[in-house]
């Protein structure tokens, strides 16, 4: 299971890594429902929420920017559970591919732009692309 919730709590409380290992990850639905995916898409496209289209081309999105890479073939590029976790970490802001003082990718979780649940939904959605 993805350790999203745990990660966030750890950041907030600055708990030890030993605790992460011992603590069970929160259970999220293994296969997102069609409704949840639709919600993820809405969050990703909404200008005041994810606004991912400002920077990323996404299938079905209009007037997309090209600051970031196109969000395409996500499953193939981020395979398996580890891949999906990595996507979550990128959107959350825990994992930067480029130093943060240079990267345009907003730290959606770290800066509380989106809730953990919203990020989860967006990641589930972009994983279908």
């Amino acid at each position: 299971m993805l350790k999203f919730k745990v990660k966030q709590i750890c950041t907030a409380l600055a708990l030890s890594t030993a605790f992460i290992a011992a603590s069970p990850a929160t259970t999220m639905a293994a296969e997102p429902t069609a409704k949840a995916l639709e919600e993820g898409k809405k969050l990703a496209f909404n200008r005041s929420k994810g606004n991912c289209l400002a920077c990323h081309a996404i299938k079905g999105g209009k007037l997309a920017g090209n600051i970031g890479p196109a969000l395409i073939a996500m499953k193939a590029r981020f395979p398996g559970k580890a891949g999906k976790q990595e996507l979550y970490d990128i959107v959350y802001g825990k994992k930067a591919r480029v130093p943060k003082d240079i990267s345009m990718m907003p730290p959606f979780g770290e800066h509380a732009i989106l809730s953990d649940e919203q990020i989860q939904k967006i990641v589930d959605y972009i994983y279908t692309l």
């Binding site: 289209l53 920017g65 090209n66 600051i67 240079i102 345009m104």
Partner: peptide, 12 residues
């Protein structure tokens, strides 16, 4: 980030 590193790219 916008006007030096990404100048020439599109935001929307």
């Amino acid at each position: 980030k916008c006007h030096t590193y990404n100048a020439g790219r599109r935001a929307r």
